[in-house]
Write a protein that binds this DNA or RNA. Sequence first.
DNA 1: TATGAATGAGAATTCATTCAT
DNA 2: TATGAATGAATTCTCATTCAT
Lengths: 215, 215, 215, 215
Amino acid sequence: MVRETSPASDERLRDADRSQGVILAAARDEFAEHGLGGARVDRIAERAGLNKRLIYYYFEDKEKLFQAVLELAYRDIREEEMKLHLLDLEPPTAVRRLIEFTWDYYLRHPEFLTLLNSANLHRARHLAESKRARELNSPVIETLATVLERGRREGTFRGGVDPVQLYVSIAGLAYFYLSNSHTLSAIFGRDLLAPKARSERLSHMTEVILGYLTR
Amino acid sequence: MVRETSPASDERLRDADRSQGVILAAARDEFAEHGLGGARVDRIAERAGLNKRLIYYYFEDKEKLFQAVLELAYRDIREEEMKLHLLDLEPPTAVRRLIEFTWDYYLRHPEFLTLLNSANLHRARHLAESKRARELNSPVIETLATVLERGRREGTFRGGVDPVQLYVSIAGLAYFYLSNSHTLSAIFGRDLLAPKARSERLSHMTEVILGYLTR
Amino acid sequence: MVRETSPASDERLRDADRSQGVILAAARDEFAEHGLGGARVDRIAERAGLNKRLIYYYFEDKEKLFQAVLELAYRDIREEEMKLHLLDLEPPTAVRRLIEFTWDYYLRHPEFLTLLNSANLHRARHLAESKRARELNSPVIETLATVLERGRREGTFRGGVDPVQLYVSIAGLAYFYLSNSHTLSAIFGRDLLAPKARSERLSHMTEVILGYLTR
Amino acid sequence: MVRETSPASDERLRDADRSQGVILAAARDEFAEHGLGGARVDRIAERAGLNKRLIYYYFEDKEKLFQAVLELAYRDIREEEMKLHLLDLEPPTAVRRLIEFTWDYYLRHPEFLTLLNSANLHRARHLAESKRARELNSPVIETLATVLERGRREGTFRGGVDPVQLYVSIAGLAYFYLSNSHTLSAIFGRDLLAPKARSERLSHMTEVILGYLTR
DNA sequence: TATGAATGAGAATTCATTCAT
DNA sequence: TATGAATGAATTCTCATTCAT
């Protein structure tokens, strides 16, 4: 006979988890919109539809809540990266796919950019304190190393490329454009987020990276 | 006709200018360290060694002060860019020089990165409201267009390169690395600001851009 | 007839008693350390290793818990006083013994002093509301009256001494010194709780009281 | 010609001082009534008729305010003690006068007792941190030493009496009775603050101390 | 031009207490 | 008997801003 978990205890467990999840989601949005300094705990509670006190019950204080949000954000992008199956593709296609994914992820998750910004404003203090920081190391780095090596062996790619540098470069090409799109749009007097501008940027990024890699 | 000013009022004026400059410098540091939301008017006054009331006297409120700081920052980098004399150099050297300058400027002015971050967190509202936004358009864009065109004509560079995209890419390669150096150092478990790491990054950036441009 | 209790309920009862005892002890320490106003129900639960809700289950609210703690404290010192058997001693020895006991009890139970303080800060409201207040009247007063009368009859002690006044005086001589030892140590620049200082105080107290009583 | 201070600047100075004084008085009353833990900054502001923010402006936080109140209280009793001119009196009269003053001062300043209580609950932390703690050493100790020595030389007083111990004893006899009058009244079932009870206590105290001192 | 005093509206955080099981 | 989840009402403290001179 299978022991049936009482719905009651089940419910209770789920409630605690659900509450924490709801708070995290609300906090992520609030932090993304206003930064760590500008975020309001009151507003997070309101967004979550939960009592403000509960935030402190589960997360101790605003800083720790921010840290939890950050870790969640990193975990999320890492999980998606792991679904790319880059090793199943030809090296140039794999790189192209990574670029497209990065671009797309940033567009779908504008809060990720802002959270990253805030985290760095505070000198990665929140991450440095996280024991799990190293776990956040993207598994894509390893994969990318394999892809680069294979491309080199096949004669498509140049040699001597550090996968970390390349990963950071791909991210940087997308990140700076999107993160500063407002400022840049104002300065250059053209809307960098318009559909056409977006696809042009993606093409440019791809050309830069592949133009550099391909021999 | 010589404009006559009483020495007294002259001096007072100079004091006024000096005070404003002192406040701007103090504000720049405070905003860079804590972001717009985290910056404290009290601390700015303290840093400036001037009465808080004076800040309001000269800059009306915190937001306008931030705007003034931003404009100053843009003006400064623009001025330095104008001293590069890229047109006196061979196209590849010119591009290399621009990359090196960008990298170097960001290293010398870490506050510039943070200010940019803050500005974008607030959706460039401060810049959009600035009547002088367009004036901040880097003159380097024009120059870069000329350099690219000359390179293409000489057969060194590929064609069809948008100078704005290229400018943004160069900035992005440097910016993301430096702006997120803390987070990335924590994640990758290596100090990205160590001298060796720095020079490696500069090499990588140069290779990427020139590798892409050169045919 | 033997009262029958199921072992189960018996055990449960004993658990209940134990829980109450544990809570009272934890509360006594917390109140002693922080006073009524500064004590935290959360901390009491933590000290007791029991759920906070249980405190309310047994003691209704914080105030009533404090009252229970106070009554326990009075009951304890009263019980110890009853073990002194002052009537078996010569009057001067009896008084000396009471002084020594008082001094020693305060040293062994510093929380007693603090609880007394807190109770009086709140104008003895908690005691006034206790139906058992009069029961707390120290039985030592009666005994002391007998001792004083016997000393007077024997020609050792002066007459006309109110036992309540004397009891209060003995307590006061010890209490003020100990209760304010930190403040006094800071002011006089000498450690009033050092072993030598302690025994000097006890001698002084004894000399004062016996010097006054003895004719 | 005498330079006339502008009423304006004078006024301003007085205002700052006055505000601080008003806050201190309000705080003293609030702390005396509720203890450090139970005192409310809001209520202090209300009592003072001043903006709450001003309290933080002048005193930084609640703890520092409490410390300032304490220092003020000590300063006050010390100043009054200095007006006693004990050296102009015969030794027994001098001691009697000190006892009466102590009793009277505690009756006139019940807040002094409560503040002392609170201070000691917090282990004299506030005083220990005060650089001025030693200055609070009552000058009466020195005087009392002289009085005791003179009494001994004249043959009225016993020798070997430590003035600090005596001073603490006098304070203790009065303090315990008054500070715990509520508890004691409840326990003994008689009003210890009734006029008759008060004068009886003063007589008792005087008899104890002089009975002890006089040979 | 310059400044110390003062303030109202919030902000994070705390706390005793209750709910639901 | 026992407990984890949840809450509303404070409470301390902060902050941008204004007043008065």
